[in-house]
Measured scan of single mutants.
Amino acid sequence: MATGGRRGAAAAPLLVAVAALLLGAAGHLYPGEVCPGMDIRNNLTRLHELENCSVIEGHLQILLMFKTRPEDFRDLSFPKLIMITDYLLLFRVYGLESLKDLFPNLTVIRGSRLFFNYALVIFEMVHLKELGLYNLMNITRGSVRIEKNNELCYLATIDWSRILDSVEDNYIVLNKDDNEECGDICPGTAKGKTNCPATVINGQFVERCWTHSHCQKVCPTICKSHGCTAEGLCCHSECLGNCSQPDDPTKCVACRNFYLDGRCVETCPPPYYHFQDWRCVNFSFCQDLHHKCKNSRRQGCHQYVIHNNKCIPECPSGYTMNSSNLLCTPCLGPCPKVCHLLEGEKTIDSVTSAQELRGCTVINGSLIINIRGGNNLAAELEANLGLIEEISGYLKIRRSYALVSLSFFRKLRLIRGETLEIGNYSFYALDNQNLRQLWDWSKHNLTITQGKLFFHYNPKLCLSEIHKMEEVSGTKGRQERNDIALKTNGDQASCENELLKFSYIRTSFDKI
């Protein structure tokens, strides 16, 4: 039985969820670079991206490699990797027998973001014989899940209580170790020597080791999670996991709180800001991140802002960003909400898709409305799209047979046209069989910064309504002859009103 693990408890099935942008060198404390989270699957090609990484700022997932063999891993080693800020997950990587050479110096898994409450997941690794993470000293947050690894031993010899604050939620089941077939031998045991430290858990006094050649490092209890030197002297209180010299914040392997210019500090002093819960960055760093993602459509890219001495992905609820200094300031009234469309555009074809934009005031991208039916549609669209004030790209209304009016965009005031449909149009209306009105132009103002209007096959939309939009939106004169079809717009509506004058002759039985 794995020490510190839980057996036999019912657990939810383990679901495996399925960018080499360097964020800056980590400095003297770390020998390499800070790398983003990685999802490495199918083959070993991307694994080489770990070569210079000291910190993975995010998670590391290595999974679904069915053609790899043990010899493929023999020359692979990433000794610079010290810390993973989120979680480490391995799933069905064939041929991998140990992690001792792959990650010989991995010391800390912070667990800032977890995989279903777990910071370390080893699942269905069919050839893994031992973990071998002999320098792993601290899992700051989260638990361990090690399950269905039929060859995995050296679990009962690990004292997880020396690595985690609590072992109650560890789930370590259905491994070879369960069948008591392992016969784990710690260093020196074969020669009758006791080389590794022994600890007591559940009444068992057991030597602690990761492999037959690597003991588990056990520091004096007084050192807590700070770690200790090879001689057993406690590291500085700002260290986490390990250090090369005692009581020196510049000799830590990793930091308990924050890293700044080669030393570990309790908090980031001005003019620095907390970033990702582990390091200090200056304003320029946060500003660069903001600008890199301002026009990016890459998933996970955030326009970072500053709030409460932190550089964070977005302002919290009730705050909006001051564009001059990136500071989050309290909103006066309802907060603006910028919604970034991942692929640059979004099609609204149902109430469900409209709900995804609920509360958005600025759309960074283009909207395509293609709704053919739905219950209580006008009210639903207004509830979900009615706060949109600005669209950076274009607005396209296409084959939306259920629409009679666009009044559900009740606050839309600006279409920038930074991206144009077919390279020309910022407003595009095609084949809307029941569209009769755009907006009530006596109450609604709309500016279209650039781009043209396109109207074709809107049989109940009168040309007068379209011409009014040209005047109000500032697009009059931009359109070419064929942009607004004269014969297919309003051709099934009563669009022309003329005053009919009647004269009559009164007659009676005795007068003409």
Rank of each mutant, 00 (worst) to 15 (best):
P330N: 07
T107R: 02
F283I: 14
F275P: 01
L233P: 07
T250R: 08
P271C: 06
C186Q: 02
T267R: 04
G32K: 04
V265K: 04
P316Y: 04
E124Q: 09
E168A: 15
N282R: 12
I158R: 04
A198L: 09
G111H: 01
Y272W: 05
D86A: 05
D159L: 02
V253E: 04
L106Y: 00
L99W: 01
D288S: 03
I222P: 13
G111S: 03
I82R: 10
N42T: 11
K310F: 09
S161Q: 14
R69V: 12
G132A: 08
H212F: 14
C215A: 05
R141Q: 12
F205K: 11
R298V: 04
I139T: 01
L128I: 09
H290Q: 13
E151S: 06
L152G: 00
M137E: 04
C280R: 00
L60M: 07
Q276V: 04
S98M: 02
G111I: 00
L50C: 02
Q204T: 05
L289H: 14
S237R: 12
C243F: 00
I312R: 05
E231K: 01
L89G: 01
E97Y: 06
M125C: 07
I158N: 04
D184F: 04
N149K: 00
K251N: 06
T85R: 12
A156P: 08
Y154M: 09
F285M: 07
L50G: 01
S284E: 14
I82H: 06
C219Y: 02
I222F: 12
I306R: 01
G111Q: 00
L50M: 11
E49C: 07
I139V: 08
S143E: 07
F115R: 07
M137T: 09
T250D: 03
N242M: 07
G241K: 04
Y118W: 14
D72V: 12
F115W: 04
D288H: 03
D184G: 15
D178R: 08
D169Y: 15
C228K: 02
E124K: 06
N135G: 14
K148D: 06
P334V: 02
P316Q: 10
C293D: 02
H236S: 13
A190G: 04
T329P: 02
K191C: 02
N202Y: 11
E168R: 05
D261Y: 08
S98C: 06
L90H: 00
M38F: 03
C215S: 05
L289R: 08
C196N: 04
E51H: 04
D261N: 10
R298Q: 02
G188L: 14
L136S: 01
G300R: 12
T229G: 07
L96W: 02
C234Y: 13
N257A: 10
T85G: 05
E314N: 11
P334R: 15
S166M: 14
S161V: 13
P270T: 06
M83G: 02
P197Q: 14
F275C: 03
R41G: 15
R145T: 03
N179S: 08
S323A: 08
W160R: 15
L174P: 14
A119W: 01
L164H: 08
L128V: 03
K191E: 02
S143C: 09
L332C: 03
Q276H: 13
S161G: 08
N282E: 15
L81G: 00
Y134P: 12
G58T: 01
N135T: 12
G142F: 01
E151G: 07
F66R: 00
L174N: 14
C268W: 00
H307E: 13
P197L: 05
D39R: 14
H214L: 06
F205M: 06
L102T: 06
E130H: 10
L102M: 14
R41W: 08
S323D: 12
G241S: 14
H307Q: 12
F285A: 15
P246G: 10
L131K: 01
S284D: 15
D288Q: 14
C301L: 05
R110E: 14
R113S: 00
R92T: 06
N179H: 04
F123T: 05
Y171V: 08
C328N: 01
H127K: 04
H28Y: 15
P336V: 06
T211V: 04
V265S: 07
C315T: 03
V167C: 15
Q204M: 06
M65Y: 14
C280L: 01
I139N: 01
E238F: 09
S323N: 03
P249W: 03
S237A: 13
T250A: 08
D277W: 06
Y304Q: 04
H127V: 04
D178N: 13
L106V: 03
S213L: 09
W278Q: 04
A230T: 11
T329H: 03
R256F: 11
T157L: 04
E49D: 13
N257F: 11
M137R: 10
N242R: 13
G333W: 15
C186E: 04
L136F: 08
C223Q: 01
T140P: 05
E180W: 07
P197M: 11
A190E: 02
F258V: 09
S77W: 07
T329N: 12
L152Y: 01
C235S: 00
S237W: 12
P336Q: 02
N175T: 09
I201T: 06
I201R: 09
K294N: 01
L289C: 12
T68A: 07
P79K: 06
C35M: 00
L114N: 15
K251A: 00
D72A: 08
L128R: 00
V121G: 07
P79D: 09
L64D: 15
D177L: 13
C182R: 04
Y94K: 09
G183F: 10
C328H: 01
Q61A: 00
D72W: 15
P313R: 10
L240F: 04
T211Q: 02
L44S: 07
E33H: 11
R110K: 12
G203V: 10
G183M: 07
T199C: 08
M83P: 00
L133Y: 03
T85A: 05
G32S: 03
A190P: 10
E124I: 00
I62F: 12
H28R: 03
I163G: 01
K67D: 14
L240T: 08
S237V: 07
E130Y: 14
P271Y: 12
L326T: 10
K176E: 08
F285E: 02
S77I: 12
V265M: 10
Y319R: 10
S98G: 03
G241L: 02
N309A: 10
D101T: 10
C243I: 00
C35N: 00
C182I: 03
T221R: 10
E147A: 10
G188S: 06
L289A: 11
L29P: 09
P197R: 13
C153H: 02
F115M: 04
Q299E: 02
I122W: 00
I201G: 13
E168V: 15
R46E: 09
R141P: 01
P104M: 01
D248C: 01
T194W: 14
S98W: 01
M125G: 09
F115N: 02
K191F: 15
L102P: 01
R113I: 11
R256Q: 07
N242K: 08
G142M: 01
H212W: 13
T68W: 10
E97F: 14
R145L: 10
R298T: 12
K191A: 10
C280T: 01
S98A: 11
L44D: 13
L102I: 07
T68V: 06
G262W: 01
E33V: 06
K191P: 09
C215N: 05
Y94L: 15
H212K: 15
P220Y: 04
T250W: 10
S323Y: 14
F66P: 06
Q276M: 06
F283M: 10
V55N: 01
H28V: 08
L50K: 00
N135H: 07
E147S: 04
V108H: 13
W278S: 08
E151R: 11
I146F: 11
G203Y: 09
F73G: 10
E33F: 01
N170T: 07
C209V: 02
V144S: 04
Y272G: 03
E130F: 14
L128E: 01
N322R: 13
C268I: 00
S296L: 12
W160L: 05
N117S: 08
K191G: 14
F91L: 04
E49Y: 11
A190M: 05
E124C: 03
F258Y: 15
I158S: 03
Q287W: 11
V265P: 00
S284C: 02
L133M: 06
K80E: 06
T45W: 15
V200C: 02
N175L: 05
C264V: 00
S296G: 06
D86C: 00
I84L: 03
C280K: 03
L155N: 06
Q287F: 10
N309I: 03
N43Q: 08
Q216H: 11
A119H: 00
L60H: 00
Y273T: 08
G95Q: 14
I185L: 04
M125D: 07
N42R: 11
K129D: 04
N149Q: 03
S317R: 00
C252N: 00
Y304S: 03
